[in-house]
């Protein structure tokens, strides 16, 4: 589960928030509830911009889950043992489930899943840029669990307290299921590190390729992030990108040590004064290039999602046609 790109505006999105209606009584009541750390539910009045921001954020989040199935799904057929195959299928399946929970949460805001998918398929909506990188070896699967899911967890846990009720509830469910993802990834790497030299080299290589991309996943520093301030104000986002990134680095360094791999950053060192690890400069140019659609796998990922959806059209049509024909016959609700 993966949440970085929620700070990235979708391509077709329009300008700054409306603020004229802030004087209204409804707006005041809304603001008061936000200030009191209360929850907003689907039928409550909410500013248009809050609604739009949520739809964008939740749908980007859902898209990330669905696109995120592809790089790991790439290794299901070649998983090196039946146990690992089962674990990986279950994990990729969980991502489908998370996408589904999140689409459902966004649907409570009046945007249908079909509309959201249309946004993804047209290239308008964004998803986490981490999935535009290839999974080249089996170790990538473990590293995605360890680092990518690890980074995502930093982001997710605070979202369980998000101001929008359905999103917060979806995130509680997601987090509950998610806890196994990072652990299974890390454990898979631990086992490989106890194997052959080739296996250890594989783990180090995957770590090298994914480390910087994971740091970038948290999104640009708050100053560069167009939505952060408002999202913080509204309790849609609780902790800043930089804060989360630091938390991730601090948590990961000791894990890397136990695992026996090095993290590819010569500037990475403990800062006694800050009581945090310092780390090197992130290549934001590469990040923005990938976000803009020009990473190594952007086109493949998107085209694959589009194809799955359009190839599935006749299946969905058939189910609906059948249901229509036999509507009166299919009253089989369980009680």
């Amino acid at each position: 589960m993966y949440t970085q790109s929620m700070d990235i505006p979708d391509a077709a999105e329009k300008g700054p928030p409306e603020s004229a209606s802030a004087a209204s009584e409804l707006a005041n009541a809304f603001e008061a509830r936000i200030d009191a750390d209360g929850r907003i539910e689907p039928q409550d009045w909410m500013p248009d911009n809050y609604r739009q921001t949520l739809v964008r954020q939740i749908s980007q989040h859902a898209h990330s889950e669905i696109v995120g199935m592809l790089p790991e799904g790439n290794w299901i057929s070649r998983a090196p043992s039946l146990k690992r195959k089962a674990i990986l299928i279950a994990k990729v399946q969980d991502e489908a489930g998370h996408g589904l929970y999140l689409y459902s949460a966004a649907e409570t805001l009046g945007t249908s899943r079909e509309q959201m998918l249309e946004g993804l398929h047209s290239g308008r909506a964004k998803y986490s840029s981490i999935f535009n990188y290839p999974t080249l070896t089996w170790a990538d699967v473990g590293v995605i669990g360890w680092l990518v899911d690890g980074a995502a967890i930093m982001n997710q846990v605070p979202l369980c307290r998000c101001s929008y009720g359905p999103y917060a509830r979806a995130m509680v469910r997601v987090c509950k299921e998610e806890s196994f993802h990072q652990r299974q990834g890390y454990e898979a790497l631990l086992v490989m590190m106890k194997g052959t030299d080739e296996q250890r080299a594989m783990v180090q290589d995957a770590t090298n390729r994914y480390w910087w991309k994971c740091l970038a996943m948290f999104g640009p520093p708050a100053a560069d992030s167009p939505h952060s301030a408002l999202a913080m104000r509204w309790g849609i986002k609780r902790i800043s990108n930089d804060e989360l990134r630091q938390k991730f680095v601090d948590a990961t360094v000791p894990q890397a040590k136990v695992l026996g791999v090095t993290l590819p950053d010569p500037d990475l060192k403990w800062n006694e004064a800050r009581q945090h690890y310092d780390y090197g400069e992130i290549d934001w140019q590469e990040f923005w290039t990938t976000v803009a659609g020009n990473g190594p796998c952007n086109k493949e990922r998107l085209a694959t999602r589009v194809k799955a959806h359009s190839d599935g059209q006749w299946v969905r049509d058939a189910a609906m046609a059948y249901a229509r024909k036999y509507r009166e016959r299919t009253i089989t609700e369980a009680v």
Binding site: R113, R173, A319, Y322, A323, Y326, T332
Partner: peptide, 10 residues
């Protein structure tokens, strides 16, 4: 939660 399906049985 919720989901999409063609009919109740599904």
């Amino acid at each position: 939660g919720s989901l999409h399906a063609a009919d109740a049985a599904q």
